[in-house]
């Protein structure tokens, strides 16, 4: 316990020497959480943005599921590719609509259905993610990337050799590693949760989950990020390299797991890889919670995540012990 408390206190003192860094982290977390919440809130319930070209100004096309921009002539193709418009809809003199889009036929059909009967149209949103899951989905990549950055004191100890002093001291090595984990965890967890709730209370914007649910989800995410960071820093000697690899892996796996958009099914190999990713389990857990699944239904995802966190931690501790305890 001596190692744990001393290291934690020492990390706190080191942090105070780098106040600008702490301010930056809090600013980044605030920005990311605000972006996740507000982007979500601002996004409308539409199936897409369309550019409508109609001979007469009053064409009568209104639908809650469509963002319509009226133009005199069709927008250039670049506006479709860059995503400004999902489709150009040209209303002919006969009253028929011509749809120009670079998106898939599924989308074209959906739009055609809506245009055919704007009043009665109901989109099929059975598999659509709710607000809370979308918010935590946005946060996954960010928190994972921040974990490796915030594990910097451990990385510094390794790079500059202070860890050898700890290994030689008559204290618990696990306590030392535990303190680094708790430090990194807290610096991710506390600001994220506080800012999320501040935004919720100050603006009243919807965040999808209850206080406890958010607590649990952010807790799990920060724990995963911390364990992954410790794992990387234990196995990679140079902190710059660990940070870079951490960023690469976090970005790629988060995208693959569908943190931002849930993708249409890919091929089987990719599907199999995706199922293994902890982010996938995390999203399933969040989605399940938001849809009111029972604990029995959620438990597998929860235990799987906890298992992954443990594997990262155990591997990191074993590797560091082998490097410094037995070697020294």
């Amino acid at each position: 316990m001596i190692a744990f408390w001393t290291t934690l206190r020492n990390n706190y003192k080191r942090m105070l020497e780098h106040k600008s860094r702490v301010i930056l982290v809090v600013a980044m977390i605030t920005g990311a959480v605000a972006a996740a919440v507000f982007m979500n809130a601002l996004a409308t319930d539409s199936i897409g943005n369309i550019a409508l070209v109609a001979p007469e100004r009053e064409d009568g096309l209104t639908s809650p599921y469509l963002n319509v921009t009226r133009l005199d002539k069709a927008p250039p193709l670049s506006d479709l590719v860059s995503g400004k418009y999902d489709a150009t809809v040209i209303r002919k003199a006969s009253g028929e609509y011509e749809i120009q889009t670079i998106k898939s036929d599924v989308f074209r059909q959906e739009l055609a259905d809506l245009l055919a009967d704007p009043e009665e149209y109901q989109p099929d949103w059975s598999g659509r993610r709710k607000v809370g899951t979308t918010i935590v989905g946005f946060l996954i990549m960010f928190i994972l990337m921040q974990g490796t950055t915030m594990m910097l004191f451990f990385a510094e100890d390794r790079e500059h050799g202070q860890i050898r002093r700890v290994a030689a001291a008559p204290v618990s090595f696990a306590g030392y590693l535990g303190a680094h984990c708790v430090y990194t965890f807290l610096i991710l967890f506390v600001p994220t949760l506080v800012i999320l709730y501040l935004i919720r209370f100050l603006t009243g914007v919807a965040i999808g989950f209850s206080f406890f649910q958010f607590f649990l989800l952010i807790f799990l995410l920060c724990a995963l990020s911390t364990a992954f960071a410790l794992f990387l820093d234990a196995f990679i000697d140079r902190s710059d390299s660990a940070n870079m690899l951490g960023s690469m892996v976090s970005i790629l796996t988060s995208i693959l797991a569908g943190s931002f958009y849930s993708f249409d099914k890919g091929n089987q190999t990719l599907e199999a890889i995706i199922q293994v990713l902890p982010q996938k389990a995390y999203l399933e857990l969040a989605g399940g919670m938001e849809n009111g699944y029972s604990w029995q239904e959620l438990a597998p995802w929860f235990w799987y995540l906890l298992g992954i966190i443990l594997v990262f931690l155990v591997a990191a501790v074993a590797k560091t012990r082998r490097n410094y305890i037995r070697a020294s």
Partner: peptide, 27 residues
């Protein structure tokens, strides 16, 4: 080596993964 990976492997995989995953929603 890490920078080479970050400058070559990462962008390649990123574009291929993003492209592949979203391919179905494009025409």
């Amino acid at each position: 080596p890490m920078w080479l990976a970050y400058a070559i492997v990462f962008p390649l995989v990123l574009v291929l993964v993003m492209g592949f995953l979203t391919s179905a929603s494009y025409g």
